[in-house]
């Protein structure tokens, strides 16, 4: 790891100021992606700004309409939260399936969606549930938030503070993990909210998480696994690597989507 300046601000304003002042600053939350990246010398930030001590980012609130997960809420917390399990059980299940127990003990929602790893799980939930990403500056609709591989609508001086997930009538996440890394080789999150159906796919797209409009259309007419029989998933634009070629990923998207729909029943 290259050395850097370390900061631990107490409030958001300080955090933003430190990042702005840094030559090449980076925010650190749980560190489950950043620290391994630094260890492998794949990044060399001048300043690491540890926001884990910033107040107000660790709350988890739920109502009949929505679940609000603070940016610093850990995956392990979401996984066992009675509120989340009651309102959006698919979200708790997704959090429970992220990486391993030790990563869930440190990793945060904010870190996950700010990084937008193309194989991360949370982006699928954000996009399928049509969540709102809340930052120190504004609220960003899910459909506007993910802008590409490891890329988001966040500006340099912007920090995710929370995500607000609307409560779905039905939702489920089906994941086919990469056998080695345990990231999603393909993960499909299906949600039905207010009659509309949203399907988001992670792990597969070469630009990160994406929606599957044809699936959504088919499921809007008939919210059942068989409704997807008529949908062909194209391999274009899908990742191809040692563990899964694009064609196999395309196939898995269909299988995981059906399983997610089945799990909604």
């Amino acid at each position: 790891m290259y050395d850097f300046n370390y900061h631990r601000p107490r409030d958001l304003a300080d955090a933003v100021r430190l990042r702005s002042a840094a030559e090449d600053g980076v925010f650190l939350a749980g560190g489950m992606t950043l620290i391994p990246t630094l260890r492998l010398r794949l990044a060399s930030p001048s300043d690491v700004i540890d926001i884990s001590g910033v107040d107000g980012l660790s709350d988890l609130e739920a109502s009949a309409e929505s679940v609000r997960v603070g940016a610093l809420v850990r995956h392990a917390t979401v996984a066992v939260s009675a509120d989340v399990k009651k309102r959006i059980p698919a979200l708790a299940a997704l959090a429970d399936g992220i990486s391993d127990a030790q990563v869930r003990n440190r990793g945060t929602l904010g870190g996950s969606i700010a990084n937008n790893d193309p194989a991360a799980d949370y982006p699928a939930a954000i996009l399928a549930l049509g969540a709102t990403v809340m930052t120190n500056k504004r609220e960003i609709a899910a459909d506007d938030y993910f802008t590409g591989l490891f890329d988001t609508a966040l500006e340099a001086d912007e920090i995710v503070t929370a995500a607000r997930f609307p409560v779905a009538e039905a939702a489920a996440y089906a994941k086919f993990p990469n056998p080695a890394s345990r990231y999603a080789l393909v993960g499909v999150f299906v949600a039905r909210i207010g009659g509309a159906v949203r399907v988001a796919v992670t792990g597969a797209g070469d630009q990160g998480v994406f929606r599957a409009p044809e699936m959504e259309k088919a499921l809007a007419g008939n919210f059942a696994p068989d409704a997807l029989n008529s949908v062909t998933v194209a391999a274009d634009g899908l990742n191809s690597d040692l563990h899964a070629g694009a064609e196999y990923r395309a196939h898995l998207i269909g299988v995981m989507a059906k399983r997610a729909v089945a799990a909604c029943a």
Binding site: G31, M32, P36, R39, V48, D50, D100, Q102, N105, R106
Partner: peptide
């Protein structure tokens, strides 16, 4: 951060100490 040989408890939670800065 995969093998887990470095696990310690931090405030009671098991964590991979190879993925945490001492300063954290």
């Amino acid at each position: 951060a995969q093998c887990g040989a470095c696990c310690v408890l931090i405030d009671g939670d098991s964590v991979k100490s190879c993925s945490v800065l001492a300063l954290q």
